[in-house]
Design a protein around this nucleic acid. Structure first.
Length: 380
DNA sequence: GCGACAG
DNA sequence: ATCTTGTCGC
């Protein structure tokens, strides 16, 4: 497995990313038929994320197009290079996908992407982007219609209907299993739409999604599991950390957990350098109307301390508290899926770790914000 | 102006 | 994409 760095000059803003798309899309080749279905190699690529740990894992799995047996596979891990923005997915996935493709011991043949090619607001989705950067023939097979419209294809497998941006056919809804929701096929690079659909049908003898996608999905999840630091079971951590049960009961006694978390954060941040992320979290905790956006606050704070090395241990604790404010608020008022409900339990122990190392005035202030002190002096 | 919106 | 419990089906 290879490790990826974010490429130099990689777009940092949405505006830059859109400019890159506008520049590169002229290089897409649409007038080649592409490899005949059922011959040579077909390669699936997919990506899995752990946003909390800022880890991304990609996989490329090469299948024999005739037998659908795995011929070769490779993975790569790296840091997340771009947030998820509809229309800019490629900037989040491509660096790691390229590394996985590079690590393959054989030519990939046709590359099947999890997403779109031509069917894209600027006609340059993930599959087209990957095709232009590698020169390989690519297609996109997506699970959802994005912003496009389509009529439901007829019931039997193999039926299609045009995927429309207004009246322009940008792809096709293709039924790969009888009476099951279609997939959405579009051209990436150097393949026609007819051929892309034919490939997709060859790749779906048993399931709705292409074997390439299924294999790559399973492999990148596994790579992600192995890349993320293995964690001890919950019970072990509870035994090793007596502050945990105190943190739990303290949190569960709060009738207004978000406001409480905000007070704790304010006390903890006192006297420390305030970053914009901390300011935002503090302001947020005081505004009940915004709690449903807790997840965004979490993500903002998480991005804010991406360069962990530049912060002191105390500042890192403040950042973690700010993240927890976002998590707790999201669990309290946001839509599912929720963060794990243990999140709030960490607030007390974390804040007290800071208090224990601080001077008596700060310690008192944190104790007041928490509402109590731990039953016995905690070290760490 | 606001929401929806591939993964 | 990710979080999640049970439930349905081959």
């Amino acid at each position: 497995m290879t490790t990826v760095r974010i490429p130099a000059g990689w777009p940092a803003t949405e505006e830059q990313a859109r400019a890159v798309q506008d520049r590169l899309r002229a290089q897409v080749v649409l007038d080649e038929p592409g490899p005949p279905p059922g011959t040579g190699h077909v390669t699936g690529v997919d990506v899995a994320y752990d946003d909390e740990r800022d880890v991304v894992a990609a996989a490329a799995v090469v299948l024999d197009a005739a037998t659908l047996e795995v011929v070769a596979q490779a993975t790569a891990v790296g840091r997340i290079s771009f947030p998820y923005v509809p229309g800019l997915l490629a900037f989040r996935e491509i660096p790691t996908v390229l590394a996985a493709l590079d690590a393959l011991p054989c030519p990939p043949g046709l590359v099947v992407c999890d997403g779109y090619g031509l069917a894209h607001p600027r006609r340059f989705g993930l599959a087209g982007h990957l095709g232009v950067l590698t020169g390989l023939p690519t297609i996109g097979v997506a699970k959802n219609p994005f912003t496009f419209t389509y009529a439901d294809p007829a019931t039997p497998r193999g039926s299609t209907s045009p995927l429309l941006a207004d009246t322009e056919e940008v792809g096709r809804a293709l039924r790969t299993r009888d009476a099951v929701k279609p997939v959405f096929v579009s051209v990436g690079h150097r393949v026609t739409l007819d051929n892309a659909c034919a490939h997709t049908l060859v790749l779906t003898p048993k399931y709705r999604l292409p074997e390439t996608t299924r294999r790559a999905d399973a492999l990148c999840r596994k790579a992600l599991r192995e890349a993320a630091a293995p964690r001890k079971p919950l019970a072990d951590r509870a035994a090793a950390d007596p502050t945990r049960s105190w943190g739990r009961t303290l949190f569960e006694r709060q009738s207004d957990p978000v406001t409480w978390a905000g007070r704790v954060l304010r006390a903890a941040a006192l006297g420390q350098r305030r970053t914009p992320e901390i300011e935002a979290a503090l302001e947020f905790a005081g505004d009940r109307d915004r709690w449903s956006h807790g997840r965004e606050v979490f993500e903002l704070v998480r991005r804010g301390w991406a360069d962990e090395e530049q912060f002191t241990p105390e500042q890192r604790i403040v950042f973690r508290l700010a993240e927890l404010v976002g998590k707790v608020a999201h669990n309290e008022a946001g839509p599912p899926p929720f963060f794990d409900h243990h999140a709030g339990w960490q607030i007390g122990p974390l804040a007290w770790r800071l208090a224990a190392a601080a001077d008596p005035a700060v310690r008192d202030r944190i104790a007041v914000a928490l509402g109590e002190r731990p039953p016995e002096p905690l070290d760490g």
